[in-house]
Design a protein around this nucleic acid. Structure first.
Lengths: 209, 209, 209, 209
DNA sequence: CATGAATGAGGCTTCATTCAT
DNA sequence: GATGAATGAAGCCTCATTCAT
């Protein structure tokens, strides 16, 4: 019977296959990161992976397919990082969570610069994919913020608005320092950011919600 | 500068020439906005402009050239809008400026959805152009914020950090509502945003700067 | 306005354009005839036409498109030839028409060997195109045969059956001699063919229809 | 012949080997019939056969090789069918033979639509193979017709011409009804065909050969 | 001034075939 | 005896750009 006909072009599941697939994925990450989706070519990717051009199509049905996979990989990895970092905290308040979350995010960007740049291109590769990326990412964040509002830790906001504002801050800080300067923001910058967020979130004296 | 003969393909300076050039520019804006830089083609642009293919090269030396020009045009227009809106205010404080600036930005995005998407692509067309765009945009904003700090209206921040955080907020709110929902954010969202920014900026009691 | 957006990729209508288009069409005819549709390549066609590869797509939207055009061109030419030949006859009976039609067909094949082979491939390029080809070709033939039946010149047959039998005879004779031997069938063969058809059509004594 | 060691990739001669080979052959028949020679792929064939891609080359040296084998298989089967059908007749005259031969052919086509389409493609895979197919098929037919002429059962014809005309009739009737309508021609059509052939063959009164 | 036919490099993808396991 | 991962040549098509008119 062999593998009949249903395999969705994910490529051989053998050990060797896994290795090749990973080489390809890593190469694609680098190449897309360097040259952008459109200018990246399959030849370039396979050359970087050290395999023949045709090998690419053993593992991925199309150029777009690797890209999409990469985007989701980043999404998963990032969420996992954030969850790990915050789960490690003992009885944290919202402000602690924001500080740790921000730092984790920036470090993640630093370690996955290519992947990060890939997301930024998704908008032009597949609009819906791009939105899905943020929807997915914001969902958990938003839940946490809503809980904090319910607990009265922070002021009440339209949760969707709040989550996008916070993501916007992180995105731009990540872009400005990690991507452009190729380094984590200085202590001072981080401190300013955390303080700005904290004060923005905090209930004012005399407020009831 | 002047109208010597070396300017590379800026096109005839006659009135008719100006008209053609503008048609081309407008067409390029639409087409780049619709299909993205890479997928947009010169034929598409010239067809939309109602001129022959070759005419394009009378006015612009390359595809990239129109794109760059478009980016700067957006930049200029946006800064002009912002300046106009804030100049109209009588003796405004920082918070008033932020509110008006935010609204102006969002309305601008609404009217220039194409140009907005164009900027976001600049990152992959010409990294430096993209950074320049934000450097230019942030310069004036930053000056204003520094003055407010000096006056003690708002807390002291690393000005670069502050300006990118604020741009990040606006960018994401504009994206989430104006681009994705195709409408201005609701009053509630705007209000939350303005309040978040205001509280983030405000000096805490007892602080001295 | 130029040529706005409706031109169905038929290429420039200028004199120069017509010339190029014809070169391309002629080259395609030869190449498809020589190597068959699938093995023929656009490079081969453009090389034979003496133009650049890209020029092909100025005139035809796809490989298949030229092919289809070629098929219909053959169809038209063949029908025109047959009509011309039979129209020239003065008060012909069915048998005279068959003789002249057969000869005309065979001569046509001899002069259009490429196009002839092209039709035979249509079956594998586009099944429906292939059937349309025969439907179109048989329509006029069939009308003539029906008239002859009505006049009582020939026996009554299911007209569709008759027309396909006659086309089958001609097709195979054309294949066997014109294509394979590269010459018109001998007088003897032609005579046998005409006689066979005549006797097959003729009413037997004592029949009434 | 024999089972020495030089036969190029005919595959293992064991029972299991035979089974695999037949699965491959059957799969190839279906796939070539469905998609045509050029569009059919080895992967498709091996998948349909339920074996690994590489296995194909254990049994056949190339894609073309299976195809050629399939063509000859059809040829053999068809001739065997025809022989069986006519051998069963008791002291038949030419007209009876033609009627039975025609019916047998049409039924064969109906049961082997795949193989039928395969032959029609042979022309573009290997011209010589295609001609050989008809030469082989016509050889026996022609001998029978010559005998009938010698016996005076039918009029004298150039035998090659006659045999190709008759094959042409059958080919087109098979195509028009069995392939296109997916059904045997109606009684009426069959009757017209048999009558047309009979009258075409028959000696006219007063003829002597 | 403008045109638009022509170019040719380069991109994505398919697939027959090989060969180490 | 069978496998299936890998190969790389080749195909169709797109498009920015040039240049003769």
């Amino acid at each position: 019977m062999s593998s009949s006909s249903s395999a969705p072009a994910t490529g051989p599941a053998t050990a060797r296959g896994q290795r090749t697939r990973n080489k390809l994925l890593a190469a694609a990450e680098t190449v897309f990161g360097d040259m952008g989706y459109e200018r990246a070519s399959i030849v370039e990717i396979t050359r970087a992976a050290g395999v023949a051009q045709g090998t690419f199509y053993v593992y991925f049905p199309s150029k777009k397919a690797v890209f999409v996979e990469l985007v989701w990989e980043l999404n998963r990895k990032l969420r996992r990082s954030l969850r790990a970092a915050t789960d490690a905290l003992v009885d944290p308040d919202r402000f602690e969570l924001e500080r740790v979350g921000a730092l984790t995010f920036l470090r993640f960007v630093q370690e996955h610069k290519d992947l990060y740049r890939i997301v930024r291109q998704a908008e032009f590769v597949d609009e819906e994919l791009f939105r899905e990326y943020y929807r997915e990412l914001s969902a958990g964040y938003r839940r946490g913020l809503e809980q904090s509002m319910d607990k009265g830790e922070i002021r009440r906001f339209d949760p969707e608005a709040l989550v996008y504002m916070l993501m916007g801050i992180l995105d731009f800080v990540g872009m400005r320092w990690v991507l452009w300067e190729n380094e984590l923001p200085s202590e001072a910058v981080i401190e300013d950011m955390v303080r700005f967020i904290r004060d923005g979130l905090r209930r004012r004296e005399g407020e009831d919600g």
